[in-house]
């Protein structure tokens, strides 16, 4: 029983059921504000209508996204999409992604494609995105490198735990430019994915 609602700043007090998850990042307040300021429509939550917020967490997940790039590269980027453990495996992340697509395929955004980064070894997530129509466009070598790892010096050395797949879903106006059947063989550096 989910409704999709705008994410409000004070919701950050009520997302521990989502954000205490070990794999979910807790950003500084300023980072969340930056998204709310620059892309106010693209930060939204799924809310469970039957849960009384005075006693239980009623936010089941949220989406944080932005638009960026120029001309044919103008696109939506999914920064974070996350779901509380209690509401997993019911396609809620897909619903959030679909809502984002509904919103950014039309005015004022009218993007060419939607993209996201996923660790190359995260098979579950890759499958989920493939089901939603995303496909691997390229491999970003060393995208998840730590400061100790340093910046990648070559594209020849790949590591599924450190590299990301740049996955894209093309909108009709993109005319298939963002779909590559051999995307996994295309490699790039992290600076190539800055817009």
């Amino acid at each position: 029983m989910t409704t999709i609602q705008p994410f409000e700043p004070v919701d950050l007090f009520k997302t521990n059921n989502v954000n205490l998850d070990i794999l979910t990042e807790n950003f500084p307040l300023e980072f969340y504000f930056e998204y709310m300021i620059l892309w106010p429509d693209l930060f939204f939550k799924s809310l469970e209508m039957t849960v009384d917020p005075d006693f239980k967490h009623n936010i089941s997940g949220y989406m944080m996204a932005k638009t960026e790039g120029k001309t044919t590269e103008w696109h939506t980027h999914i920064t974070a999409v996350t779901v509380a453990p209690r509401f997993r495996r019911i396609s809620l992340a897909s619903k959030l992604c679909n809502t984002l697509e509904t919103m950014t395929d039309v005015m004022p955004h009218e993007v060419n494609f939607i993209d996201l980064f996923v660790k190359c070894n995260n098979q579950l997530a890759i499958k989920l995105y493939e089901k939603l129509g995303y496909s691997v466009y390229r491999r970003v070598v060393g995208y998840y490198n730590s400061s100790q790892d340093g910046y990648p010096e070559t594209l020849k050395k790949v590591d599924d735990n450190k590299d990301a797949f740049d996955m894209r879903k093309a909108m009709a106006r993109d005319k298939g430019r963002s779909v590559r059947s051999d995307g996994r063989n295309h490699k790039c550096y992290p600076h190539d994915v800055r817009f």
């Binding site: 705008p6 700043p9 004070v10 950050l12 300023e30 504000f33 930056e34 709310m36 300021i37 106010p40």
Partner: peptide, 21 residues
């Protein structure tokens, strides 16, 4: 400072929530 930027960037829908926060 951030709220001021929200005014300047016309991100009006989020400003009341920012005040509350």
């Amino acid at each position: 400072k951030y709220i001021q930027i929200a005014f300047e960037k016309n991100s009006y829908s989020k400003i009341p929530g920012m005040f509350e926060m």
